[in-house]
Amino acid sequence: MSDAEFFRMTDVNKFYPMGEEQAHILKNVNLRIEAGEYLSVLGPSGSGKSTLMNIIGCLDTATSGKYVLEGQEIEELTEVELAQIRSGKIGFIFQNSQLLPRLTAQKNVEMPLIYAGVPPRERKRRAGEMLERVGLSDRIHHYPNQLSGGQQQRVAIARALVGNPSILLADEPTGALDQKTGRQVMALFQELNREGRTIVMITHDMNIAACARRVVHIIDGELTEGGEAKDA
């Protein structure tokens, strides 16, 4: 473990108000990731894994504890600074791809660049490149409803990658896909990881989790190391 540290969570706790009481979602989570790692967080629904992902992705902040992302302490940042970190460092992939239905594949991929203020020509070029990278260069001008589930998810991956983020955060990326398409997406993830991309994937599916190089388990908000997974 001599590689550069990518992020470190120290004693992270997260409480959510649930009526009168405070639900304790994350309990003293400690997690450290190095650049270039491929980690999957395995846990059943309600285990707090989505909350963990939100904190990693700077969509949410911890109630207590420390989260340092590439040397930056996240707790102290304002909403705007968090948005800038999301824009520059993090690529999200959601379960249902979450493409905007009224925009073409290309425009969907351009979306993060629009908020980052990238000029139209460069946006177009980079979106085109990314769609080519995920094997959809012939679907650039299709709308989401003209694409299959797997293709939609690949557009979403292209969208996550277009801003050249340091980390890819995927929440159940194969949840809405059939097995075959799911395997294709996983193959793409492994390829991206081999290219040096740091990936954190959240899933409840043991088989999918096994595609990662390292697996941690989360149950009832408590994180346990699952050891090195097989290098697929």
């Binding site: 992705g57 969509l59 909403e79 705007v80 948005a83 800038q84 999301r86 824009s87 520059g88 993090i90 999200f92 959601f94 979450q98 905007l100 979306m111 993060p112 908020y115 980052a116 969208r159 801003g163």
Partner: peptide, 9 residues
């Protein structure tokens, strides 16, 4: 989604 993609308020 747009916020996750980096949109500022």
């Amino acid at each position: 989604l747009k916020k996750a993609l980096g949109a500022i308020p």
